[in-house]
Simulated assay, not measured.
Amino acid sequence: MEGTVLHLLHLLRLRYTGAEDEVAPYIAGHVAYLERHHAAGTFLVSGQTVPTSEGGAIIAHGVDRDAIERITAEDPFVTSGVAEYTVTTIAPGRAHPALADVLAPGL
């Protein structure tokens, strides 16, 4: 399993636990959290869902499930109690060639 950890993808679904305006005081911290994990290469894509009132989503890679659970627990939205994550881990079997550098040599 150790060799395959880098090839796992995680779909992180962020859901607000209350009204959308309750997250406003924590946006700056959440953005810093996103930037930190994008810079580290763990987060590949992040963004708000449509409609935005539902929350957001992230695609992450390069870490195992335990690590991604720890990472999501550190989000200021989560530590402040205004949102929660659902994590779906994916072991890619097929992917578009444009993703080869991210997923290789796992495929």
Rank of each mutant, 00 (worst) to 15 (best):
V78M: 02
L11P: 04
H38W: 07
L107D: 10
P92T: 04
L6M: 11
P97N: 09
P51A: 04
P92G: 04
E84G: 14
H96W: 06
L34V: 12
S46A: 15
L9V: 03
S53Y: 08
V78L: 03
I68H: 08
G18Y: 02
R94M: 08
I68E: 03
P51E: 04
A39G: 10
V23N: 01
G62M: 05
Y16G: 07
P76D: 00
G29M: 05
V87L: 06
Q48Y: 03
R94H: 13
Y33I: 12
G81F: 03
Y16A: 05
H38Y: 12
T49D: 09
I68D: 01
V87S: 08
A100Q: 10
R65Y: 14
T72A: 02
H37I: 01
T49L: 13
I90Y: 13
A19R: 11
T79Y: 07
A83W: 09
A98E: 06
Y16E: 06
A91T: 10
P92Y: 07
V87F: 05
A39F: 10
V31G: 10
H61G: 13
F77Q: 00
F77K: 00
R13M: 06
D64C: 05
E74Y: 02
V50S: 11
L103A: 06
E69R: 07
L12D: 01
P51N: 05
S80A: 14
T52N: 03
A67T: 15
L34D: 09
A91V: 06
G56K: 07
L14F: 14
L12M: 12
R15A: 15
E2G: 15
I27D: 08
G56L: 09
V63D: 13
P105C: 10
A73M: 02
I27F: 15
T72R: 00
R36W: 13
L44T: 09
L107R: 12
D64E: 07
R36M: 15
G55D: 08
A24W: 03
L44E: 12
A104C: 06
P105Q: 11
H96T: 02
I27L: 14
A19K: 12
H38A: 10
V87D: 06
A83I: 04
P92M: 02
E54C: 03
E35F: 03
D75K: 00
A57W: 15
I90V: 14
G41L: 05
E20C: 04
V31M: 14
V45I: 15
R36G: 11
T52W: 05
H30Y: 09
V63H: 13
V63T: 12
Y85C: 04
A60N: 10
G81M: 01
E74M: 04
S80R: 01
G93A: 11
P92V: 02
G29C: 09
E69A: 10
G93V: 05
E2P: 11
L14D: 12
I27W: 13
A60T: 07
L12Y: 01
T17E: 09
E20D: 13
S46D: 06
E74A: 08
V50E: 14
